[in-house]
Design a protein around this nucleic acid. Structure first.
Lengths: 343, 343
DNA sequence: TGCCAAAATGACAGCGCAGTCAATTGGAAT
DNA sequence: ATTCCAATTGACTGCGCTGTCATTTTGGCA
């Protein structure tokens, strides 16, 4: 592995292998029309010169960019995991990730996105919630015909693949767990209205309650917008009603942590006097006591899959395969220390 | 703002403005040698065609890439904030961030990094801890002469700028806070050995204790490696000694959360029976009860600054200005609910 | 052996821009 | 008006690669 001060180019390899630059290009791009003998000679030259194709040139000349956009707006802690998973998959195929942070509420949002898209070709874009449900950005991407994969969108959008877990089913199972422990008065803290997960998780809760003939009291349903501070307020209200719930289902772990912190402050004994479940297995879920019973999404796997969908469809620019890939991945129910039978 | 299906190029603008492509290039790059009249005409044409320079072409043709690498390996929660800050600053100057996740312990680490560097020109790289102290990656970047900014490195490395907060001073102040409350037996949980912050924070603690004639007991110093689970073990040991400490200084918030969770589990009354301080103002700091007394690093500001250093030095490829910029930013002492006078 | 289609290879242009250097212009000084 | 220099502008090239299409080679078959 020689290490020339000036990186080797296609021409250099071509000269060494005594073929044309175009043939080297063919080998690099794994085009089938190269004889075995030639291919091997070229590969040896590539090895020898430690040749790496220049991405910028490829982007400029070719129709691929080897770049995938990962767009987010105020994500939770999972961003790090998600990025790691997607980056990993990208590296395997010589792709790269361009992580872009947007502010959906900024007046410049639209302009910024379309500027980016026209500045560089992206082979695809992965949309993280809540961007997965954003019509504006969806349209921009469609108009620019950038293949888009949505993570956990509210609805299946019929022009782009999506990757989800079954929030509804997970919520049902979590509720069933609480019910099986003997809880009957269960409080529920909703996420942010309009967010896909908010509806599904509540629907799962409500259906399971109904299935087991347990009434849902209106006074025990609060809206916490997925954030800790709102969760605190919800918990306080929930625990102040005449006959407080024996268990609380928070739509995510941050809000569950809020419930637990309020309970601690009030001197409640956990989990005996109050059971709490969250959702997401966020870092905080295992950084408090009692450890949260929650649902884990396979974030890293989702990320890999999202990147993979784009990478695999990138060469042929024919659009997505049909039927459109909508993958539902398995979640994991994590029963930990925050749930117990009511006293 | 017309919206042609085919993005406008330099040529298009040149034609409309009735100048040469090169002149448009000059305007776009804010070169001084363009007459006011011409510049205005060109600017109008740019506006009209909504022209955006193609990044790939710029990278290929010019000596700049408008790309900054943000390299990390297992960062904490602050990554999201850091990325957002850096991305923000980048966008202001038409730059982009390439977030790269490495595994320092992987045998392919070196090869992967140098492959990336030869695949695309980066105008600079920002190294997040613990990569800031990594000699291997430092050398690769130096050999490739990629301007590098280190975040919170252990030592000032004299060939690249760094951005730090004064961990030592912050730790002293945090310790002084505990001391002023009346604590004398104070436990300490160290971070990961070798990590820059680990040493500085302990040094600050030790110096302040010494300055106030308070002995440090060897049995009250544990090593928690900055992670929650190790923090749990440390806390258990610390609270099991014959006469346990009345306060515990954890080198970061995750470990402080661990102390609090153990205390809850043991039924200790917080903060009266045990005061706890953390470091970083991580998300968990405000997602538990009692809210953590801690130190906030201006992560977003650090990120902006790091990006800015690279952006500003990018045009002239003369290397860093001298003296080398080593910025120490102000931290913020956040006294919240986890500290009180001992009973 | 010769013929032909298929397979393999190469020549060349051009992606969109910035660097180089030569050509032109403008204006101040004479 | 003339001269001269600095300010301004443009022509041209090449960055490293891929797409297109022409050319050469190969192998199967008559």
């Amino acid at each position: 592995m020689a290490k020339p001060s000036q990186p080797a180019t296609l021409e250099d390899v071509a000269a060494l292998a005594e073929v044309s630059a175009k043939t080297v290009s063919r080998v690099v791009n794994a085009e089938p029309t190269v004889s075995v003998k030639t291919r091997e000679r070229v590969l040896r030259a590539i090895e020898l010169l430690d040749y790496k194709p220049n991405l910028n040139a490829r982007m400029l000349a070719g129709e691929r960019s080897y770049l995938i956009g990962l767009f987010y707006d105020k994500p939770g802690d999972y961003l790090t995991n998600f990025h790691a998973g997607a980056a990993d998959r990208c590296r395997e195929s010589g792709y790269h990730l361009m992580l872009e942070s947007w502010d959906r509420d900024s007046p410049q949002f639209t302009r910024q996105v379309s500027t980016l898209l026209r500045q560089m070709r992206l082979d695809g874009v992965i949309l993280l919630p809540p961007l997965s449900d954003d019509v504006l950005i969806g349209n921009i991407l469609r108009d620019a015909s950038v293949p888009t994969v949505r993570i956990a969108p509210r609805d299946h959008i019929e022009d782009s693949p999506s990757i989800v877990i079954d929030d509804y089913l997970a919520a049902r199972q979590l509720t069933a767990h609480l019910l099986s422990l003997g809880h009957r008065r269960i409080g529920f803290i909703l996420g942010k209205p309009g967010h896909g997960a908010t509806e599904e998780r509540y629907r799962g809760f409500a259906d399971e309650m109904r299935a087991q003939n347990t009434p849902i009291e209106a006074s025990l349903v609060e809206t916490g917008n997925f954030v800790f501070t709102d969760g605190v307020a919800c918990a306080q209200r929930l625990l102040s009603v005449q006959s407080p719930p024996t268990a609380i289902f928070a739509s995510n772990d941050d809000m569950a942590a809020a419930v637990i912190s309020v309970a601690h402050k009030r001197g409640l004994e956990l989990p005996t006097q109050l059971s709490v479940v969250g959702f997401d297995d966020a870092p905080v879920a295992t950084m408090i006591w009692p450890l949260l019973t929650t649902v884990r999404q396979p974030v890293t796997t989702m990320a890999r899959l999202a990147a993979e969908l784009i990478i695999e469809n990138s060469p042929r620019r024919l659009g997505w395969p049909s039927p459109l890939p909508h993958r539902t991945l398995d979640f994991e129910l994590l029963v930990r220390d925050s749930t117990a039978a009511p006293t």
